[in-house]
Simulated scan of single mutants.
Amino acid sequence: MKRIIVGITGASGSAYFLRVMETLAQQELEIHVIASEQGRKVLTYETGVILEEQTQLWNKSKADIILEDNENLFSPVASGSYRCDAMAVLPCSMSTVAEIACGITKTLLTRAADVMIKERRKLVLVPRETPLSTLHLRRMTELSELGVTILPAMPGFYGHPQTLDEILGFVAGKVLDSLEIENNCYQRWEGNHEK
C-alpha cells in the first residue's frame, strides 16, 4: 500500500487541503496527516472543519488515515527507514518553507519534510502567499534546486470553471498529479483541434 504524508500549516487556503484529502481518502492508501497548531486553527476558522472529527469521517472511506501529533518526533514518519512514497504540505506557510529550506526540524512536519529531501523522495510544497518577497523566492529556489516541487496555489482558468470547487479542484489535481496519484479533479487541457 502506498504511503503518503499530507501536512497543513497556518497559511490561508485550507480548502485546498480538504479537496486533496477528499480525493486521497477514496483510494487505498496509508495517509499520515500532520497539522501545525496554526494549521488546525486556520482550518477551523476558514472552513468550520475540526480536523479530528473530519479524520474520523475520512477513515470511513478506503484510506487508512493516521492523524499524527506534530510534537511527536518518535513517529515512524520521522525516520528515513519508514518508507513513505511522497509528501505534500498544503497550504505551506512561508515560515514552514524557510524552516524546511534551512533544515530546522523542531516539529514532526518539518522533520518529515527533511526526511523526504534527504532520502530523495517526492516532496510537494503548496505556498499560498502574495506578494512573494525576495526572501520567500530565495528559500523556494533553494528547495527547488534540491528536487522539491514548488506548486503555488495558482488555479488555471482555461477550463472555464464555474464554481469554487472547480477552482479548488484545479490546484488539488495538480498536487495529486505531482504525488503520482490518479485523479479527475480538474479538466485537463486538450488543446484547440479546430482547423
Rank of each mutant, 00 (worst) to 15 (best):
C92K: 03
T55A: 10
R83A: 08
M94T: 07
V49C: 03
K106I: 15
A112T: 12
P76I: 15
S81L: 12
T23H: 00
S75V: 10
E22H: 09
F74T: 10
M87T: 10
Y45Q: 14
E99P: 06
L43M: 07
R40E: 11
T9I: 08
I66R: 02
E71C: 05
S61W: 00
R83E: 11
E52I: 14
G39S: 11
R83W: 12
T55I: 15
A112W: 09
R111P: 10
L109R: 13
E46D: 06
I34G: 03
T23S: 07
E71I: 10
S79G: 15
T47S: 01
C92Q: 04
L29N: 02
A113H: 11
E53W: 05
K106C: 15
E71V: 06
L90K: 01
D114E: 14
V97S: 03
R83C: 13
A63V: 00
L43E: 05
E28L: 03
G103K: 11
I104V: 09
A101T: 07
P76D: 14
G48C: 04
A63D: 00
T110W: 03
V97A: 04
S81E: 11
A113I: 09
E30W: 02
Y45V: 05
E71D: 13
D69M: 08
R40D: 06
E37C: 05
G13H: 08
E30H: 11
N72I: 09
T9N: 07
G13L: 10
Q27M: 05
K41Y: 11
